[in-house]
Every structure is written in C-alpha cells, then in structure tokens.
Amino acid sequence: MPQYPNRQFLDFEQPIRELYEQIEENKRLAEKNSKVDYKSIIQQLEDAIIEKRKEITERLTPWQRVQLSRHPDRPYTLKYIDKMSTNFVELHGDRNVKDDKAMVGGFASLDGQTVMFIGQQKGINTKARQMRNFGMANPEGYRKALRLMKLAEKFGKPVVTLIDTPGAYPGLEAEERGQGEAIAKNIYEMVRLKVPIICCIIGEGASGGALGIGVGDKILMMENTWYTVISPESCSSILWRSWDKKEVAAEQLRLTAKDMKGFGLIDEIVPEPIGGAHWDYSEAASILKSHILRSLEELKQIPAEQRMNYRIDKFSKMGFWNEEPEAVGQTEKA
C-alpha cells in the first residue's frame, strides 16, 4: 500500500495528513539537530494518527462511508487474493466474445484448500483504471464469472466472490450482447450451484452489477462498504432530479454494512483495520480470510441439496409488505 507522502486523503481524512506533515517536519528537525530527542515526539504523533483514524471512522455519515469504499488507496480484488491465498492461477475469457478485464477469477489455494475466486477488479492508476473499465463489467465479464463457477462446480470447489463495482457497464455493446440476460443468468445459476458460495462486498456493491456475482450461502460485507439497489448519485438524480442530494440519498437508502446486517439481508460484517482497509492491506486480508475460512467450514457440513434449498429459502424471505385480511398479528411481515 502507498506510504506517506504517496497516500491520498479524503476530505474528512485531512487531520491525518496534518499529523503526517508534523512527523515529516520533526524528522527534518531531528536531522538538523541531533542533540534534541525527537523520537518520543514522533512516536506520540504516530499514536495520534492511529487515534485519529479510529476517531474518524467511528462517526462516519453514510455518504462518507461510500467515499471510503471508493478510497483510491483501497485494496482491490487481486490484492486480496494475493494476500489471502497461494498458487493463484488466473483464468481468462468467457469462451464467446472476449476477456473482460473488469472481472477476474481463477483457482487458488486458501490454507490448503482449493477455491475459485471471482471478483470485479478496479485499476490502481489512470491507465489501469481504463483497462479495468473502473470495475464495470460487460456481459462477457458476467459470462466469464459463470463459466468459472461452473468449472468450480464440476471439480467440487467452493466459490468465493469479491464484489467491488459501481455497477454493470451501461454501454451500447453491453446492451447488444445482453447485459440484462447475462446478470439474470448468473443470479439464476448461482441460486442452484452445487458448491458452497461465499460472497463478500469489499468496496462498492451497486445493484445488479453486484448481485450478478452476489448470490450465495453467506453474504459478507466489509465494514466500510455499501450495498444497495442504485448508487446514491443516480438515486439522487432520479428521485430528487438533481445530482446534489447524494448525501441525503445515501442516508435514505440505508446502504451501510450495519444497516444491511440489521435488515438481515447480509450475514456478517467483516471488520477492517483501524481507519479502513487502505491503512493495512495485510491485516484487512487476514481478517477477511478468517471470516471466509470459518464460513467455508460451516457450509461444508451441509449436504449440497440442502444448501441450495437454504439459499432459495433465505432469499425468498426477503421483503416487507402488508397483508390485509389475515388475522391481527399476522398482518405484517418483514
């Protein structure tokens, strides 16, 4: 991960940058004046940084949480795969049109057991961002993901998906090649895949683009991520007819991990290093790994048929409505 001064700071992270600047300043002074002990001052400032990171993430607004999920220094799918597993072999292509660089996947060894990793990939610099299409997959990306899932099913290997997308790509060719159909097919096939599926939102979880690799036995969300039906910006533009209400939209959509857990729409929240995953890739990956391993252990105990039925049951319970003529006390369901 980038170290200061290559770190990037969001507006609400500015106090941390100031502390870094103070450290730099003290280091410079220490070089000039060896008689004074700057070590303890620097140590204090470093402690203050940790404290600040903690303080900032403790009281984030939903919109700030969205910003954090998009932090330019945040680790992406390949980074997690690299940190969590060994022997990763990336597999390419949907066998029909092309290889979508916004969707990556392949077999890897997770503490000795082979799993199929699949996830959207964002770029780490301008050039890579373009190559990865900002993590927005085309239909061939979803079809590649499905091909890999079927491959995993054939060899009885569990599937782990890492979700990080601002949405499926809304392009002309994407429509020609059936973006809707590709996502629909994935959702349908994931519902009945015979091997365990663990899905984790590691960044942005926007709508169908996320759900296209997001149906599974266990749905995890990292602490500073969001998951809902539309991005706050688009929601603002449609419902408020203005791009300026994204903060309000983020609040109204109740899109944070905490909200989603509260609604029972996800199973677990995966804690992040103090201040967010971008402060310590290794720690973030190791926490995620422990959650995945625990879920895998649990899921392996369940026979395949039963696991699929649980999956269907779990999703069919989601929703809320009123039901009029039933007896009192039975009128509401959530």
């Binding site: 519902v191 009945r192 759900l211 998951y227 809902t228 449609i238 729409l265 069919s316 809320f320």
Partner: peptide, 23 residues
C-alpha cells in the same frame, strides 16, 4: 426497474424471484 424506495430489499427480489423460477 427496481423500486428505489425499498432500497436493497428491492434488489434482493431479483434473487428471490430467480430462486423461485429454479423450482
């Protein structure tokens, strides 16, 4: 499309309905 006023609950209907179609 999906009903935004029901947020993630409306998104999950995609999985819910697809699961039913499998049956």
């Amino acid at each position: 499309g999906a009903r935004m006023m029901e947020s993630a609950f409306s998104l999950m209907q995609l999985a819910k309905t697809s699961g039913k179609l499998a049956l």
